[in-house]
C-alpha cells in the first residue's frame, strides 16, 4: 500500500513523534511505500537541526534523517508553520536576515498544498498528534 504520514506533535513533548517514526519504519520494513512524511502544527519542531537530546535517548531528528538516507522517504515541513516557530532553512534565514539556520536537508520547507496532494494520492494518510 502507499502511505503518507502527518506528524502534528513536537518531539519529546508527546508520544506522537516517537510513534510516527516507529510506525513509518515499520511500514518500509514490511515493504509498503511511504510517499512522504509531512510535518505540520507543532510537528515542525521535528525538523530542528540543532536538537541535542541526551545521548541515552532516541534522537528523533537523526532518526528521520536516517530513514530518508536509507529509503528516500521525502520529509516535507509546512513553511508557514515552521517560520513562525523559528524553523528556517538557509534560504529563509537569509531572506529574513537571521544569522543562522535551524532546518537543513533532507527536511524541505514546502507549502500546505503538498499535504493535500500527498493525502489524495496515497491509499492511507496516518496522522500522529498529541
Amino acid at each position: 500500500m502507499r502511505y503518507a504520514i502527518l506528524l502534528l506533535g513536537a518531539p519529546y513533548s508527546h508520544q506522537a513523534a516517537h510513534s510516527a517514526l516507529r510506525f513509518t519504519r515499520a511500514l518500509v520494513e514490511r515493504g509498503h511505500e511511504v510517499a512522504g512524511v509531512f510535518f505540520y502544527h507543532d510537528g515542525v519542531q521535528n525538523a530542528a537541526r540543532l536538537a541535542a537530546p541526551p545521548q541515552d535517548e532516541p534522537h528523533l531528528v537523526d532518526g528521520w534523517t536516517a530513514l530518508h538516507a536509507e529509503h528516500g522517504v521525502p520529509l516535507q515541513v509546512c513553511i508557514a508553520a515552521a517560520l513562525r516557530r523559528g524553523l528556517l532553512d538557509e534560504r529563509e534565514a537569509s531572506r529574513h536576515g537571521k544569522s543562522g539556520h535551524s532546518v537543513a536537508p533532507p527536511f524541505e520547507l514546502t507549502g500546505l498544498g503538498q499535504l493535500v496532494d500527498l493525502g489524495l494520492r496515497c491509499d492511507r494518510l496516518v496522522a500522529f498528534g498529541p
Binding site: Y40, G113, D117
Partner: peptide, 11 residues
C-alpha cells in the same frame, strides 16, 4: 489554513 489551501487548489 489546510482547508483554504486545498480549496485554492480547486479541491
Amino acid at each position: 489554513d489546510a482547508a483554504l489551501v486545498a480549496a485554492a487548489f480547486e479541491r
